[in-house]
Nucleic acid binder design. Structure first.
Lengths: 340, 340
DNA sequence: GCACGTCCAACAATCGATTGCAACAACTTT
DNA sequence: AAAGTTGTTGCAATCGATTGTTGGACGTGC
């Protein structure tokens, strides 16, 4: 478009700029950092020169020297289910809120989707020297690895269930209570033959199932059956359809392990002419934005994802500052909509 | 748990390890890189020592020296709509596929959600010195800024519409054709009073609207009306509901700017007792995974997100290698489901 | 015994910044 | 005029790696 040359000669480092300005590199560095230590005139002269040549100091070098990277690692461990895709809506929802909170505070985000093959995967991330802190979304089946690292690495916060005697700092809802709430909701709707739909290798999902069992036991019902599914969205659909074909009308209340699973279940039931909630009640878990947009709207257990994300970031910053924050457990909450 | 001390003394850099091993830092560096230049015995001795102390070389320093970061920036410019949230399902879907492709190739991902306030936002990202390349998801209203940078910065690929005479490398569907397909689908269903639902500041959405107009003109229909909405999910719902209340039955065919908008429209129509597709036909755009899971399933225009993401990554790698790849335009495809 | 090649490790420069300290000029104070 | 301040700038060390070059030890061939 414009053929005015705004870039007379590309400058690669402060040394070249220093030569051009006839000063030392130290002065250039201070000038660009706008330090009062250098004369206002030379300062502005150097800044103008930098602008004219489109020069910006190399962040890699700066951060190496400063020993502060202003980068937070957001890590999604996919231990239990390698095929699970990063685009899982739950990951994405929480990632979005984390990104908002972190960028507001001037931090960059390094995103890692890790399949824990080597057992030192977390150590490798944590002392790469590129991160000021780490946020883990879900502990998957990697409790041991996380605990091991938490012994000596402070600035790390994990989304997930809180265990007894854990060293690491976690933020999450009480999944067992959440599962119980879902169960109570189904039971209140008059359902008696309950099932849990979801893979229970990850501790979060397992706790939800146990909560459902608690509710059933309290109401004197038989123990809910457990129907495993893949976590990858594409495989999940087939699993769910197969389960529903198999169990037929043996089940009248389904507590799904996540909203995504619940959506697919409602979909599969609808395909078979089974009406939700008339014939079968279904509850989700997570309260993703899309739970409100399905038809019928999902009754689900809220994880308060925005609040949780904020809490993770706050705790992480305190830990970067040297504090030793406790784990946070948020209250699960039943969101009653149309499916149960 | 275990009280065996696996970490006798924390080692911070290769110099300390070198002292411990009684060799020079150069030897340690080469030993850890497993170079044949150092004697096999000392090499293994040093590697064992590093393992025992849990030492891993600082990546920041390494990358500074190597002048290669193995980090790709994935940038989401939010120029037109600051409130738009990162958790927008379209962003997340494509981000997921990009993440898969990049991690497979050994690259890390630096995620930036940018609100282009300063006009050199892209320059700042691009020569931070921390990135080997940049992927932009959507060009928002930042065409000028992107072109300016593309003049001198090669390793950058942009998701979005292809303009005439653009310098930068883009990958995306032909949005105008896509819009036309949507229009033709509505018209084929006998709809005559068409509307486009979505914000048309971003060029992608604008092209979709123009395509819809093309179809209407070809069929001799009146020009479709344009109904603006916010792009932020929470504000969008209100806008859409208001539009639908206002236009009433003046419209019998809605081409939505995205699947998300279409979902909300279907939802709002259902709330008012208007049946889709019986009373009103609706088409989406993107073909997100969730388009298949709504009830009724969305009829939509496929963007082939997985293929597009792969194409972006492939093009980027070629550009990092020095090649000068052309833009890629993919064919839009109508996916006929239940809503139109 | 001397020249030569091979193997291995040390030395030192380099990547591109930041920053404590010293140096020096120009004023003030006494 | 000597001593002390104040304001600017330069020098050089530092962050933690990588890598080209140098050189010593050793073995071999004549």
């Amino acid at each position: 478009m414009s053929d005015s040359p705004p870039v007379p000669a590309r400058i690669r480092n402060i040394a070249e700029l220093a030569r051009l300005a006839g000063v030392s590199t130290g002065t250039v560095s201070r000038a660009l950092a706008d330090k009062a230590l250098v004369n206002k005139e030379t300062r502005e002269r150097i800044q103008a020169l930098a602008r004219a040549h489109g020069f910006r100091p190399n962040q890699m070098a700066r951060r190496l020297r400063i020993q502060e990277t202003k980068v937070i690692g957001v890590v999604i461990p996919l231990g239990h289910e390698q095929r699970q895709h990063l685009s899982d809506p739950f990951f994405m929802a929480i990632l979005g809120h984390l990104a908002d909170a972190l960028t507001e505070s001037g931090y960059d985000i390094m995103l890692s989707r890790v399949i824990p093959d080597a057992d030192d995967w977390l150590e490798r991330i944590v002392d790469s020297g590129m991160l000021d802190g780490v946020l883990l979304i879900g502990q998957s089946n990697q409790f041991e690895a996380i605990e091991r690292v938490a012994q000596w690495y402070r600035p790390m916060v994990v989304w997930g269930t809180q265990h007894l005697d854990q060293t690491h700092c976690s933020v999450g809802v009480n999944n067992r209570t959440g599962g119980r709430l879902a169960g109570e909701c189904l039971i209140a709707a008059g359902r008696k033959r309950l099932a849990f739909l979801g893979e229970t290798i990850a501790p979060e999902l397992k706790d939800r199932y146990l909560g459902l069992c608690d509710a059933a036991a309290a109401a004197g019902l038989a123990q809910p059956i457990k129907l495993d599914t893949h976590l990858a969205a594409d495989l999940m659909a087939g699993d769910i359809a197969a389960h529903i074909d198999r169990i037929g009308s043996d089940v009248d209340g389904i507590a799904a392990g996540s909203d995504l699973i619940a959506m697919q279940a409602v979909r599969a039931l609808a395909d078979r002419g089974i009406n939700v909630p008339h014939d079968v009640s279904v509850t989700g878990f997570d309260d993703l934005p899309l739970a409100e947009q399905t038809i019928p709207r999902l009754t689900t257990i809220s994880q308060n994802i925005p609040g949780g994300a904020r809490a993770m970031v706050t705790a992480l910053f305190e830990r970067i500052g040297g504090a030793d924050t406790p784990s946070i457990e948020m209250a699960a909450q039943l969101i009653r909509r149309d499916t149960a």
